[in-house]
Amino acid sequence: MGDVQHASGSRDTKASIHRAALDLFSAQGYEKTSLREIAEQVGITKASLYYHYSSKQDLLRAIIGTFVDDLRQVMARTDGLDWSPEAERELLGAYLDVLIKHRATGPTLMRDIGAVLAAIDEDLEGLIATSRGFQLWLAGPNPTVPDRLRAAAAIEALSAALSANLSPGEFIDSEIHATLLDAAAALLGRRNA
């Protein structure tokens, strides 16, 4: 039982570190935020922070990595899946759910793109290829260039969940989901118009 509590406490501490880091990165930028400030916001010592993360870059990599892993899981669902309007809407919804779940990461992604790219450098080409494959699947069977452009635009519409900078309580998750999913579907729906 002690091991379970210790593991749970470690996860809780890591989650608190992630939240504090994202708050500080969003407010003052990645470069201007120190590990000491993050530790203070969490209420732990800098040494305790180093127990979990060896550097600020390691911390950013963990935060971004969780987000990227969740996106990849959704995009991988297209492997071997035949396109249909129902499958398209389901996967768009799942992709959007990931963006909503990680929307606190959005301001950091937008503000410090150089640090983010450095954090995912070894995965960047694979992530781009996976994303392009997902967009191609969304474009439907035998897509034309306009179909592919609409699929890319639909993904960009969903990314508004990250860049809209909505205050907590300003808009509930289900409203964000419905609004952006309808916008993305409308962009894709013009394919046959």
Rank of each mutant, 00 (worst) to 15 (best):
L162R: 03
E31H: 10
R72H: 12
I100P: 11
T78F: 02
R77K: 15
Y95F: 11
L136R: 15
V68Q: 11
S159W: 08
I128H: 13
A119P: 08
S131I: 02
H6W: 11
A154S: 05
N142H: 14
A153D: 07
D70R: 15
H102W: 10
I172W: 11
A15M: 10
F134A: 13
D121G: 05
T130G: 06
W83V: 05
H102D: 01
V68S: 08
T66L: 11
L162T: 07
R103S: 07
H102Y: 06
G93Q: 04
P107S: 01
E122M: 05
R148E: 03
Q135Y: 00
Y30L: 00
G80V: 04
R150H: 03
N192W: 06
S26W: 08
R150E: 01
A160V: 12
Q41V: 13
L71E: 06
G169M: 04
H18Y: 10
A76G: 09
L91M: 15
S84K: 10
A104E: 10
D182F: 10
A39L: 14
T105E: 00
Y50F: 15
F171K: 07
R19A: 11
D97Q: 12
A178M: 01
E37G: 07
Q28I: 01
A160I: 07
D58V: 07
Y95V: 05
I100V: 12
F171A: 02
A39I: 05
S167D: 10
